[in-house]
Amino acid sequence: MQVSINVNGNQVNEEIEDRTLLVHFLRDQLLLRGTHWGCDTSNCGTCVVWMDGEPVKSCTVLAAMADGHEIRTVEGLEQNGQLDPVQQGFMECHGLQCGFCTPGMMMTARALLDRNPDPSEEEIREAISGQICRCTGYATIVRSIRWAAVHEASAKQGSNS
């Protein structure tokens, strides 16, 4: 079948096998390899992308279901050569080790900050609780997201004054 999906702001029209999972469509067909795959049961969250602004597990979405929708992946976080504060936060606070869970974690973090620019530690933990990181022990991920929140707030303040 034919799908037409907006991926990171670009309209793509592709022929797919009906059963193709969104994660495989992104990785194997569009060669956007930043989105990962880590389980068979929708538990790990290494595959998290946005569909119409909401984080979804792309292993649990058929590419066909994304037809006519907007997808945003980790490759779409950096804008005009400018890293997203979430990406910076992860580097500054050691929010990643092997980096395998990282794209999914950052996509969830970005969505959280968009709806709640000043989340508490508890709110952050809750937001990423559908995802597993086997390396970091989460504390540094929490700090990374706080770093982004604080820096976004001060950047906003700077531009207001």
Partner: peptide, 21 residues
């Protein structure tokens, strides 16, 4: 010191085995 491997990993530009095509 910030990690030298991070710039590629936070951009989704890591190179894992399954990324090879």
């Amino acid at each position: 010191m910030l990690r030298k491997e991070d710039p590629r990993l936070i951009r989704g530009q890591g190179n894992y085995v399954d990324d090879l095509n």
